[in-house]
Every structure is written in structure tokens, then in C-alpha cells.
Design a protein around this nucleic acid. Structure first.
Lengths: 107, 107
DNA sequence: ATTTGTTATCGTAATATTGCAATAATACAA
DNA sequence: TTGTATTATTGCAATATTACGATAACAAAT
């Protein structure tokens, strides 16, 4: 046991849960916030900004990236991370649509 | 290690992560959706509807409840669950405010 | 008081997540 | 090519989550 039974839920439900999972760790929320507040989309100083090891940040970035939320471009030696705003917007809308639907039928 | 370093993040960031965690498991999303789609706020047949053991559902309900998202009233023998719409709305707004702020400063 | 129906809690096993050091991989500069 | 800077990956160890059976706790009815 211990594994989530993904197959017993609808695609919509699994999608909402998958989106929420990205934001369910403070490091990932902090990374997204930090990237967004930088003038240009700044890179490896995420590690300095947040107090976690480089390997850990890289791992969290992978989770964020797997959700389609990052665009990266190389600038000199370093990789310049940027939020994929279109996808970000899309997730927000999916989430809101779930919230709104749920509120509607409520007693 | 393996424990999240909650103390190195701001309250706002931890709050967003905590909200997201509630929705990060498909069972909890399914439970919320199911409760909302019932005419009256129906009770223990959540167990029948979703294919999980009663103990497991109860555990998920506790997580949802700890986030302030449930109102329960006794009706005869059984506990009648209902979504706390005000709190639900509040979480939606907190989430949206994070999304909107993040989108704003984006490159 | 006993039974019945309902929900919560406990104990435990399986799996997932988090975090880091070490190391690989990559890109640029000299 | 060699060195330097940056990011990804690998391989653990620690902790958290998920799931379930068993059992407790509670309310209502008999």
C-alpha cells in the first residue's frame, strides 16, 4: 500500500491533483515567486536566494518544468529560467474552473 | 533528510503550499467534488462512491477538515458532510492572488 | 443493556518525497 | 585541450504520505 490509486479517478480529477502537487511544496512556490520577481529571468542564484542545496533546487525545478511551467534559455554559461506564462495561466484557469464548479452545486 | 524546511519560507509561501497540499491527492479532489454534487450534503456513501476503505476516506476527510473546508452536522446516526463555501472561496482567492502576482512581474 | 449503523483512531506495511554530497554533463574562455 | 562556471543526475538516508484492517467511540433504536 502507500501508493496513490490514480486509476480509480477521472482524468480531470487526476489533473487537478497533479497541478496542486506542483505548488504543494514551499520550495517550489518560493522558486516560482522568486523567478517572477526578477527583472530579467535570473538563473542559478535561486540557490543562494532560497537556503537549499543546488541539487535540491534542481530537483524542484524539474518538477516545475515537468508541469510545463518553465521556459529556459541559455545566456552565456548559465541557463536563464523564465516562467511559461501561457501555461501558468492555463493551470490557473483549470484550478478556478474546478473551484467554481464545486462551489456551484454546494448546499 | 526528507523533511521539508518549512522555517526558511515566508508565511505566505507556506500558506499557499499548505492549501495546494489539500488538493494534491486525487482522493481529496474526488471527495470534494462528490460532496458538492450531492443534492443534500451526503455522508458515508463517499466510501462507496470512491473505491477506498472507510479508514482511508476518514483520513482524507481529516486533511480536508483541518484546512477548514468542511462543515459537518449530525442527521440521525450519520454525520452529514458539507463544504464550507466561505472558506473554499477564501482559499480560491488566496491561490488566485498568488497566481496573479506571479504573472505580473513575469518577463 | 444490547444491538446496529456510522465515523474516528491506532498500528503497520508499502511507497513517495525531500534533501544533500558526490559526480557527471554541458558551455564557454583561455 | 584545460580550466572554470553552471546545471543535471545518481545514490543514498531521513521523513512523510497513503492505504487498510482492526478496533474504539458514539448515537439511536430495540
Amino acid at each position: 500500500m502507500g501508493a496513490s490509486k490514480v486509476d480509480i479517478y477521472s482524468n480531470e480529477i487526476n489533473e487537478i491533483a497533479a497541478i496542486a502537487k506542483v505548488f504543494s511544496h514551499p520550495a517550489r512556490v518560493a522558486i516560482l515567486q522568486y523567478i517572477s520577481t526578477q527583472e530579467a529571468c535570473i538563473c542559478n542564484d535561486i540557490v543562494d536566494e532560497i537556503g537549499l542545496a543546488q541539487a535540491t533546487i534542481s530537483q524542484h525545478l524539474k518538477v516545475i518544468n515537468d508541469a510545463g511551467l518553465l521556459k529556459g534559455t541559455f545566456e552565456g554559461k548559465s541557463l536563464c529560467y523564465c516562467i511559461n506564462v501561457e501555461r501558468f495561466q492555463e493551470l490557473q484557469e483549470l484550478f478556478n474552473s474546478f473551484f467554481n464548479k464545486t462551489k456551484l452545486n454546494c448546499c
